[in-house]
Design a protein around this nucleic acid. Sequence first.
DNA 1: TTGCGTGCAAAGGTTTTGCATGGCA
DNA 2: TGCCATGCAAAACCTTTGCACGCAA
Lengths: 141, 141
Amino acid sequence: MKRSPHYSTRQSEAVLAYIASLDGRHITAAQILEHFQSSEGHIGRTTIYRQLEKLVEDGKVLRYSCNGSPGACYQYVGGIQSEEKNCHLKCENCGSLFHLEDEVAKEISRRLFEKKGFIMDNIKTVFYGVCSSCAKEESHV
Amino acid sequence: MKRSPHYSTRQSEAVLAYIASLDGRHITAAQILEHFQSSEGHIGRTTIYRQLEKLVEDGKVLRYSCNGSPGACYQYVGGIQSEEKNCHLKCENCGSLFHLEDEVAKEISRRLFEKKGFIMDNIKTVFYGVCSSCAKEESHV
DNA sequence: TTGCGTGCAAAGGTTTTGCATGGCA
DNA sequence: TGCCATGCAAAACCTTTGCACGCAA
């Protein structure tokens, strides 16, 4: 659980910059790999996986699987969660990511503790579902 | 996207029966594989994967990834993808997976809907954190 | 100088595919 | 009988590891 200090390298900066530049959209590991194979600033596969691992540990990036397809997806959340350590809501329809107010998160967290003695990790926990805009659209169809 | 008619075979029945017998608990592909390697009614790897694929297409079974661990998880949902299915609590320390009582899940779900208009997907949502037994141990250390 | 970071090659594990055979309807 | 299903072996994937070298602090 302890974190070693991170060195700043060309590769670590580039991976973070790239995934952060997606503005919250998610991307597959394969796509990241491909991006850094082709662009002039080549980065090895191993390094990319290891940087992603660190970003996930740091809570800057989320890792999850997209719809049963093999291969993980990554999504930058560093900007969202920097101040408050909030949970996220992930819309399975449009892919948008929302952050949950601290108040509600705490309430849920407390509930889980009372009922199950479970200490929720706000950074890692992601609620999946359908966001309000998508729910509206679906009801029209 | 079209479905061919399915033949009923010893293997297809056995796979469905096994996963349905878990009463909603999920299971990894590896565990299913193992089960049918060892039990007297041996079923080949390929067949198991293909049966699972069909069950997922039919909506009888859900496939998702358990956190970052490689390998998919499957869960029987019997065609009713209702809001009544349980969420899971995943302990980041010991790795145990717990089920969350329907009552609590509903409460949380309702809260998210009220506050954010977000319709939670109970099946996909996983709460990460530390379970009660691990919390106790940690406090002793 | 120290120890983390990098990247190649190779290993490890999961899932899919080719193909000949078996079995349901 | 006509297809679909099965299962072995092998291929195709995704991710991690071993190891020697590079480089930030």
